[in-house]
Design a protein around this nucleic acid. Sequence first.
DNA 1: TAATTTTACATAAGCACTTATATAAATACT
DNA 2: AGTATTTATATAAGTGCTTATGTAAAATTA
Lengths: 316, 316
Amino acid sequence: MDALRGYGELGLGSRLKRVSEYMMKETQLVYNHFNIDFDPYLFPMFKIIANKDGVTNSEIQRALQFTQPAITQSINKLSAKGLIIYKDDKLDKRKKIIYPSNKGNKTLEKLKPIWKSIDKIIKEYTLESSSSLIEHLNILENKLSKKSFSTTIINDIQMKISQDIEIVSFENRYAKNFYNLNIEWLQRFFHVEPYDESILSKPETYIISKGGHIFFAKLNNQIVGTVALMPIGNEGLFELTKMAVSPEHRGFKIGQKLMQYSIDFAKSMNLPKLILYSNSVLENAIYIYRKYGFIEIPIEPNSPYKRSDIKMELVF
Amino acid sequence: MDALRGYGELGLGSRLKRVSEYMMKETQLVYNHFNIDFDPYLFPMFKIIANKDGVTNSEIQRALQFTQPAITQSINKLSAKGLIIYKDDKLDKRKKIIYPSNKGNKTLEKLKPIWKSIDKIIKEYTLESSSSLIEHLNILENKLSKKSFSTTIINDIQMKISQDIEIVSFENRYAKNFYNLNIEWLQRFFHVEPYDESILSKPETYIISKGGHIFFAKLNNQIVGTVALMPIGNEGLFELTKMAVSPEHRGFKIGQKLMQYSIDFAKSMNLPKLILYSNSVLENAIYIYRKYGFIEIPIEPNSPYKRSDIKMELVF
DNA sequence: TAATTTTACATAAGCACTTATATAAATACT
DNA sequence: AGTATTTATATAAGTGCTTATGTAAAATTA
């Protein structure tokens, strides 16, 4: 029982507000999912700044028809996020000319695929002929209530990226990527031991030459994730380890793609099972392990990694 | 150059917000114009309270899908305006049951024609078939930019009321209306003199029997305004005086309707001119006098009214 | 050239929402 | 019956806008 809908044209103002607020909130969730420090309400301003390369406060104000203090405040927010920089106008000392910063341009590149997907999905939802504005709103709200807007957008983006992800095997030129991808989470969560340094610096020596395998996720010719299968003991037991995804590419299910590939590979080798060691602070990783069928088993007192407090296995 | 429009589907969220905010603001202007102490954002809540006769905070919340604090705050606002009253639920002591107050019901009666007009105009603007939501928004915004929404609504209501207004001549049964209508503004702006009391209490004696005329504006069988033409001296000079409109019916151009009728009447009597005395604080009245062609002339030192500081005449 | 008006931007406070949290009463669980 | 959970409402603080106002520089006018 949606009272606002029952009011028809009379409730249009409140109705528009409700839909708008919903979409803003959901868009925020999408930005959060992809770890982008950006707010939906900043979108119109930031897009103008990005398009025009050098605008003033009042130029934005005229283009958007918000009040001038609203623009000033949003600009301050963009500046606080480090997305824009100012230059003083030489000819008119009152003016502050606004440009996207380097970080701003990087953020923009991350935002573009999201904006593209939003545009696509909204078109799917609203490019329909109808006999009134209210009917169009009904259609839109019905679609939004079936599946949340954020989920739809996130899935759409993940699917698109997923199609473009290619899994490749180790080559020497990827050694540096292997190091960089893994050192990031090691440094962030734990202390990097000398043994870590060795294994990450010389994967050829420590993994490949011992009969192990390293796979990489490649997106647009860029290495964005990795995982290794390392033999332990000499009974054909393999450990899944050194899984990492670039911070800029989290949220695209790249970890899951690597995991699926590793499992398929292990099965094709007729391995009886895979084991892995992890730590309970690595919640996202453990979520993936569980999702792909790994079950927690007791960890031996002298486990090979000091930092591990969880051992899991996947029996085929 | 409207950047938001240029963004198409991508800018939908911001776009909806903009249209919504515009309509809210304009609706506020309409309420202000008709001297109704009400806010557009209170509309959905107040309509539920009015329809259901006895609702709780959380029932409203479920019907509108706002957050519960939003409802509590709006209810407090409605209460502060005196539009609602509470009763405690006997069975469940947590609940506060909300009803419209007497003032609330009165306000509701004033709001209904406005809501009716808003619904009608929005239907005119949006009951059109189009191939996308954005196109519908374009149509709506184009129409809103041609003539402000508030002006359109106010004119529509004024026109409807104007058609229903009937001007009638003095009868004894209207004497009380003549008194009440005039005493209101006299008390509000000035001090009521004994002579005022006499003339307002006995219009028959002081105006009609001396060859004067009194007209009344009648709306739905209710007297809502008045004006008098009073002879002064014995050279056929008439003074336009005692013009008043009920506070509940201001904004409907009733004063202008009475003025037009008086002028037509004076012309039909072949009067050479009309004069009037007023005071500069009565800005709305003077606006009407000027609009209908009255010109300010020097006021005699011993004018008949202590409170007058302006004298005007309209020569035919 | 001096005085006035306009333009560009900033700051303060208010408003209608939000999230987070508190409190009391009713209901469900064991 | 006693305890935990849920429900109904209130309060506090934050957010993105608004209006109102201030300040400095530029443009216009006298």
